[in-house]
């Protein structure tokens, strides 16, 4: 499903810094249906790895293939590849001037889903993360954990085959973090490929994931937990 071949990413030097090599020649394969956790200290390259898989950044060397497609291949194809991926962000990236419902509906709007069918799917997604009763509210009225769950609802409403979550539990206390992990596990159990980056493996142990450890931009170790 995901193939990284000798992937390197170097951020260009700017004023005040002389560039930074975030990833060095990573070769890695993640199969369909896997639950993988990318871990390592901050600055090890976890977020960069996820950004490369999502096509948010392009590698400076090597190739990234998702579903057999080279992400560097075509900018035109990129939006359509993104639609097969669900993205969960550490900072949620919600639209704060729109209701909970409208936030989740956004990916369906983008694909031009018929409104009635879209509404049904939005409610199903909100139900899955336990926010159905709050669909009319604005995201600011939600707690941090609820906002993260809203972000997950938006990531899964279009039923992607791949879920990428960048530090989804970073700012949450243990109970909330466990909620998030449980939700991610439930998607893994129905066949969705899940890739999570985290510096905190503890809350993810229960999921028995494959652990990909990064250190200074290189693969440090790889082992099933």
């Amino acid at each position: 499903m995901i193939l990284l071949d000798k992937v390197g990413k170097r951020y260009p030097a700017g004023p005040g810094n002389d560039g930074h090599e975030a990833l060095k020649s990573i070769t890695l394969a993640i199969d369909s249906g896997e639950f993988a956790v990318v871990t390592g200290r901050s600055g090890a390259g976890k977020s960069t790895l996820l950004k490369l898989v999502a096509g948010i950044e392009l590698p400076t060397s090597g190739t990234v293939r998702v579903n057999g497609q080279d992400l560097a291949g075509s900018r035109r194809a990129l939006p359509f590849m993104r639609r097969k991926i669900g993205l969960i962000f550490q900072d949620h990236k919600l639209l704060y001037d729109r209701s909970v419902f409208d936030n989740v509906q956004l990916p369906l709007d983008i694909t031009g889903f018929p409104p009635k069918e879209a509404a049904r799917r939005v409610r199903a997604a909100l139900d899955k993360v336990g926010l159905l009763s709050r669909e009319r509210e604005l995201p600011v009225t939600l707690s941090g954990g609820e906002q993260q769950r809203l972000c997950i609802a938006r990531a899964i409403v279009h039923r992607p085959s791949l879920l990428l979550a960048d530090e989804p539990t970073a700012n949450l206390d243990m109970d909330y973090a466990q909620d998030i992990v449980d939700i991610l596990r439930s998607f893994h159990q129905v066949g969705v490929t899940v890739v999570v980056s985290t510096h905190d493996l503890v809350s993810l142990r229960m999921a028995r994931p494959r652990v990909i450890a990064l250190s200074r931009g290189m693969l440090a170790s790889e082992h099933p937990e």
Partner: peptide, 8 residues
């Protein structure tokens, strides 16, 4: 956000 979730 729209671009991140697949908007052309």
């Amino acid at each position: 956000v729209c671009r991140l979730i697949g908007a052309t």
